[in-house]
C-alpha cells in the first residue's frame, strides 16, 4: 500500500515538473516574440505615417516610402490566391473523389507531400527557368505569382484533401441514395461542408507566401520601382525586398524605415488572416 502511494506521489511530481517545463518553454517563445515586436515598434512607429505609406523609394530616408512594395506584395499575393486555390482544390477533389486508388495516385501523393518540404529558393529557380525564360513571361508580376502559386499549392492540396476526407461518409451515401451524381454531391455537399477547413489551409499557405523573398528575387523582383503595377506584365517589388534594402543601408534613418516596413508587413499578414478567419466563420455557420 505504502509503495503505491509513494509511486502515485512521484507520478504527480513528474506531472507538475513537466507542466512547469512546458510553461517555461511557452513563455520563452512568447517573450522573445514580444521583445522583437517591442523593439520593432519602438524603432518604426515614428516613421509610420501617411507619407511613408504613399511614397516611392528615395535616397533620402525621410522621403522614402513603402508604396511600391505594399501594392506589389498585395498584387502578387492576390494573384497567387486566384491561381493556386482553384487549381489546388481541384487537384484535391480529383485525388479524393475521382482518382482510383492505385500506384499512380500513391506516386502523386508522395510527390505532393515531398514538394511541400522543398526549400523556397528551388521554386524560384524553377520559376526562372519555366515562367521567365521558357514561357517568356519576363520578370513580371504574373511570373512572380505563378512561382508563388507553385510554392503554396502542395499545402493547399494537402489541407483540402484532409478537409474532404473529414466529411462523414454518411453524407456522401445519403446524397448518392437520393440519386445525386458525383458532381452534385461534391458541389452541393462536400465542398460547402469542408470549406472552413480548406480555408484554414489557405490561411497558412498565404501567410507563408507573403513573407517569401528568395524565390521572387530569383525570378527578378526589383528594388527601385517608382510606379505601381498596371498589368500582369508589369515589373514589381515586394515588401520584404524593400525592408532588406533599408536594413542593409549605412544610415540609421533607413533602419527606422525598415522597422516601419516590418510593421506594415505584420499588419497585412494579420489582416489577411483575419479576413480568412472571418470567411471561415461565415461558412461554418
Amino acid at each position: 500500500m505504502e509503495h503505491y502511494k509513494l509511486q502515485a506521489l512521484r507520478q504527480r511530481l513528474y506531472d507538475i515538473l513537466f507542466q512547469v517545463l512546458a510553461l517555461v518553454g511557452l513563455l520563452m517563445a512568447v517573450l522573445v516574440l514580444l521583445w522583437l515586436l517591442v523593439t520593432v515598434f519602438e524603432d518604426g512607429i515614428g516613421r509610420l505615417n501617411r507619407q511613408f505609406l504613399t511614397s516611392f523609394p528615395s535616397r533620402r530616408a525621410e522621403e522614402a516610402g513603402i508604396l511600391a512594395g505594399l501594392v506589389g506584395s498585395l498584387a502578387v499575393v492576390l494573384l497567387t490566391i486566384l491561381i493556386a486555390v482553384p487549381i489546388g482544390i481541384g487537384s484535391a477533389i480529383y485525388l479524393e473523389e475521382y482518382g482510383k486508388k492505385n500506384w499512380f495516385s500513391r506516386f502523386i501523393e508522395i510527390n505532393i507531400a515531398n514538394l511541400a518540404g522543398v526549400p523556397s529558393i528551388v521554386y524560384g529557380l524553377l520559376g526562372l527557368g519555366l515562367f521567365v525564360r521558357w514561357m517568356q513571361l519576363d520578370r513580371s508580376l504574373l511570373a512572380g505569382a505563378l512561382t508563388l502559386s507553385l510554392l503554396i499549392m502542395p499545402v493547399v492540396i494537402i489541407s483540402a484533401r484532409e478537409a474532404l476526407r473529414a466529411v462523414p461518409a454518411g453524407i456522401r451515401e445519403a446524397s448518392f441514395a437520393m440519386g445525386a451524381t458525383r458532381w452534385q454531391t461534391i458541389w452541393h455537399h462536400l465542398l460547402p461542408i469542408s470549406f472552413p477547413s480548406i480555408l484554414t489551409g489557405i490561411i497558412l499557405a498565404v501567410s507563408r507566401a507573403i513573407g517569401e523573398t528568395a524565390p521572387l528575387i530569383t525570378i527578378g523582383a526589383l528594388t527601385f520601382v517608382t510606379f505601381l503595377p498596371d498589368s500582369l506584365h508589369s515589373a514589381f517589388t515586394i515588401l520584404p525586398i524593400q525592408i532588406f534594402n533599408w536594413i542593409s543601408r549605412p544610415q540609421a534613418a533607413f533602419h527606422e524605415n525598415a522597422a516601419a516596413g516590418i510593421i506594415v508587413l505584420l499588419v497585412i499578414t494579420l489582416l489577411l488572416n483575419a479576413t480568412a478567419i472571418y470567411l471561415r466563420n461565415r461558412f461554418s455557420r
Binding site: 528615395s58 535616397r59 526589383l222 528594388t223 527601385f224 517608382t226 510606379f227 515589373a235 534594402n245
Partner: peptide, 18 residues
C-alpha cells in the same frame, strides 16, 4: 534615377539588386 524621373516623367527606371 530618382532625380532623373522628377524631370523626365515619360521614362520609367527600374533598378534591381542581384
Amino acid at each position: 534615377a530618382e532625380e532623373y524621373q522628377k524631370e523626365h516623367k515619360g521614362v520609367r527606371i527600374t533598378i534591381g539588386v542581384s
